[in-house]
Design a binder for these strands. Structure first.
Lengths: 214, 214, 214, 214
DNA sequence: GATGAATGAGTCTTCATTCAT
DNA sequence: TATGAATGAAGACTCATTCAT
């Protein structure tokens, strides 16, 4: 006769449906692109009726913010993990970051691809605030490199770290998320080589070695 | 009453229709994404009937290879120009390449974006052979850097050049084509800084300076 | 622990719910047509759940008879008022009736329009018995004119009075309820002129002047 | 090998479809109200596909103007007929008009009901210009009565004729189009009596007999 | 009883593709 | 051969009604 289980159950029912729908969308996204997924498909996969879908969400697009939000949590956790596992030297830190980020992208390729492409197809439906939050996380990753300021040989260490992170991410997006397409495909570098070389490139860039320029 | 002129005329007419349709598609692509363009729209813009469209092309997707082909010609010309304008030192060569490629992408952002996204949305409709041709062009760009072998301080100069080019392209795709989106947006590097820094990074990477690593 | 108060309370509560729903429907009808009002809208406005609605009423249409009934009470009161305020001469009586009826329609245009249109859109859901009751009220209005039998110059005074009332009502429906639509709109008669002229017409018709007929 | 038949055929095909759809709507309207008719119903009845419907008309509502237009032509013809068949005396003229108009409404009750109700349900979709045209036709009918100015005993003959016509139309709308509903139902006047009495009323009103008032 | 979540039939609408002319 | 009318499958969305809690 306790209230809690009942309330819990009530909350859960509603929430369960929403979760089922989000999960169904995630599943569908592994096979096809958002645009090609119909509401009927999602609801069928979720085991609910279309009406139920429209009771929760205004339309298919309304699901995306939740996807972004869920992803944000995942991303935050990952960054936290990186922040807890710092390395003693810059070079080690860079190597570790490249390795872990590669793995992170590989393991979440489906969701990453979706969000990456959606952002490009529907820039308007992304709430600006969310984007800013990503910016915060990029900063935090950059800050991890900044833990080794004396090893960074650069006019502006901050800029260098930001740039290194940005280059790394751009590189991994193409190499990991779209490895079977141009430009990744056109480039004869294997994934393993890519990991090694991008590490090397970041290290070269960040450390003293830029004396050569002028 | 000679056959030739008539056939000629027919071929020409046929060709004209095809060109008109391709042009119409290109025009439409400036305003909306391929997916959202209907056959009716294309034919209306081209001034031909839908029936005529289906006489020439199996479906809308069948237009894309032609678009890729046209782009291939453009790309080839650009690479040729790069091949003709080589620099004396590796560092100069890198700086020149970064500058020109940035400009090339900026000037053709529309078509680049379309092809880049289409490739990601419809990987299946890209004929493999076309991709290989791209691969050839990537190779040629890489080869330009290889003109300075003694300046490249690397186990495998070829790998290093390929990698440098691939990183450059990935970087420019995000920074130039999607500058208002994550990750470009989340990164605080300006476009000018990006040009400068990516040059620096490639130079650091390619030249001797990797002594620091170990 | 007496039953009465509880039952009373229950009945009251039940009745309250019903009243709330009827009131909600009335409110909605001021803004949109019955057809376009959803059960969800009504219940939301009434502050009850849809389930509760369906416990009370078979469906949305089942609300209408209650609306008609409420209106019947209003109408009855108005007729009673007319019956209490009779005039000495037929002409005066007609003028008074026209004036008051015009005002009555103007003041209740919303509900009149609704019932008038609903009756036309859903003739089947009007319980016949209710209609007969209207018939009774029409008769009572007609009877008011019949209070001046000697002034009515007609083969059948009853027929003449019934006819006069019917013509008056038809005229006011179009002129008052739908004054911005055809036929009212197409007719260049102003509302004031209409009041005056319909009075005149009824008087002409009812009084001696039908000598012309044969 | 004449062009005409072919062109004719082409024009006809397109036109035929449109006519079929309009006819189908008309047929459906005999059984149910516009609002309750689905596009699928109309196209099925017309023997064409839904796609064909949407090629001609933006949506269901887009059919209405055509219905109005067709009706306008019919109405115009009827008015012309009335204009050609004038009577020698006002009384005869009134009687003739009442008789013919009653018949006209009876024969076109379906379409009249539809237009009358639609105007009330969707006042916004009626192009104002069309309404004005009706106004012209009302004027023409009124003008027929005005052919007997010396028989009309009224301050303003024009006003009297307009009023008479408006009252007649209002009366017939309720009595003919909605004879089984309030107020027509509530009034004990038969249709035959109504014809006779409305004639009488108009005659009384228009002719000298208004001396009695004061 | 009351609640409101879930259902699913029904409607509108689009658009790729076919086919009569 | 070119045209554009016709087709119909497919998808989005609504809402009256039911039913588990």
């Amino acid at each position: 006769m306790h209230n809690d289980p009942i309330i819990q159950a009530k909350q859960t029912r509603s929430q369960q449906t929403q979760d089922k729908l989000l999960q169904a969308l995630s599943d569908c996204l592994k096979e096809q692109f958002f645009e090609h997924i119909s509401v009927a498909q999602i609801t069928e996969r979720a085991g609910v009726s279309v009406g139920t879908f429209y009771r929760r969400f205004k339309n298919k697009e309304a699901l995306l913010p939740f996807l972004y939000q869920n992803f944000g949590i995942k991303l935050d956790k990952w960054v936290q993990k990186m922040e807890r596992n710092t390395k003693d030297s810059l070079n080690e830190q860079v190597a570790y970051l490249v390795e872990k980020m590669t793995k992170f992208l590989q393991e979440n390729a489906g969701i990453f691809r979706t969000l990456h492409l959606n952002a490009r197809l529907y820039p308007e439906i992304l709430p600006t605030s969310k984007l800013n939050e990503r910016s915060a996380e990029y900063n935090r990753i950059s800050a991890i490199l900044m833990l080794h300021p004396d090893e960074i040989n650069h006019q502006c260490a901050k800029t260098a770290c930001d740039m290194a992170i940005f280059v790394l991410i751009s590189n991994l997006i193409e190499k990991i998320l779209y490895r079977e397409l141009t430009p990744a495909l056109a480039s004869p570098i294997s994934i393993n080589d890519n990991t090694e070389q991008i590490t090397l490139m970041m290290q070269s860039y960040l450390t003293a070695n830029n004396l050569g320029k002028k």
